[in-house]
Write a protein that binds this DNA or RNA. Structure first.
Lengths: 205, 205
DNA sequence: ATCCGACGTGAACAGTGTTAACGTCTCCGC
DNA sequence: GCGGAGACGTTAACACTGTTCACGTCGGAT
């Protein structure tokens, strides 16, 4: 395994475990068995290294979104895409955060902002395709497929990010350890139902 | 004006202008005409100071949400609340980012995470009230008002955060300066339509 | 007059990302 | 075989960060 790969592996593990605040170049170097400046032989700077981590995330993400193609009819394919999105967000929260949540420019990560905008454009295209399919099949009212795709992405993205900030289950407010498994199942249910409701709302009158 | 107020004012201005990465204690101190350690006479640490900035944001935010009460019927009040949310997010992006977007725990801001969760719970209650009103009036199908509120908040929150990451208008991809005013108007339109569609979807069959 | 607490200071510490100067290998052409 | 070149790593240092410590300097209450 090359030193470059080893550095990336360490950066990824440290980030996924400790978040951005735990990701220091010296920590990465220590883990990889080198000193900090050695990293600069392989990556331009910290932002560049972080981007390499993001790229691995996007690769993983693409596989989750790909599940959408398994659905039988257009509506099922769109919903299945939404569920793949949810699974990725729940199973790989840390990845999801850098890739879609944390606004890079506010943390001085300007290049990362650009690059991830491009990447987002690609996944967005996948969603637009599913939406257009639904429009052709009469599941969604004909119109601007791009706009509808923004609405749907916004919807699922919002639910997922909100789930990470709210207790979600208000009964569990301030009750110790609100059994994450149960509330996650509840949230999945809610996610699914709301996706249905939204698509209904976007359907022909 | 007390020194404490002056420090807070500087911290707010610097943050709103330069984002989190530009907010250094020494910069705040310089602006306020003191040295960095003086800040510790008034705030526990940087996180505490940042929280004070957030509090001002929440105060402002409450006024925007309050507009929802102007609506005539329950549905109008719910939509008006959603539009107030949008206005705040668009007119005070930087505030919106710390308050609702950036996940504090990933940046080592644990206390801020707790505190803002509490604050979010409060605004959430306001939304639940509007939803319950709609259920009573038959605008939204009867059921769990909290769940419906999560869905709606997730929806608007997702659209707003997405707008900050996507070009929104795909025609403007990579075209220089895609006239922010025009695309903002377009986005408002899309936001409003999708909110309508979602509430339709949540209505009785 | 004296103590005290509030407020501010300069110096210092550990940690950060990053750069410069210096080695040490390996491989390639002569 | 020899010399040069390039890839890769090191140590030392710089400027910056949040934070703490010991020291002052006031104003007000006793």
């Amino acid at each position: 395994m090359s030193a470059k790969d080893e550095i990336l592996r360490c950066a990824r593990d440290i980030y996924l475990e400790n978040g951005l605040s735990g990701l220091s170049l010296r920590a990465v170097a220590r883990c990889a068995g080198v000193t900090a400046p050695a990293i600069y032989r392989h990556y331009d700077d910290k932002e560049d290294l972080l981007w390499a981590v993001c790229e691995q995330g996007h690769e993983l993400f693409a596989r989750y979104l790909g599940r959408g193609l398994r659905g039988g009819d257009p509506r099922a394919r769109l919903i299945e895409t939404g569920l793949g999105y949810l699974d990725f967000a729940l199973e790989h929260r840390a990845y999801y955060v850098i890739m879609f949540v944390a606004p890079p420019s506010h943390f001085g990560l300007d290049r990362l902002a650009e690059r991830s905008a491009d990447e987002n454009g690609a996944t967005f295209q996948m969603l637009v395709d599913r939406v257009r399919e639904c429009m052709d099949a009469g599941v969604i009212a004909p119109g601007d497929a791009t706009a509808a795709a923004v609405i749907i992405w916004g919807h699922v993205h919002g639910l997922v990010t909100l789930e990470q900030r709210l207790p979600t289950d208000p009964d569990a407010r301030r009750v110790a350890a609100p059994d994450p498994v149960a509330t996650e199942a509840k949230f999945r249910e809610l996610y699914r139902r709301s996706l249905d409701a939204l698509i209904d709302g976007l359907g022909p009158r």
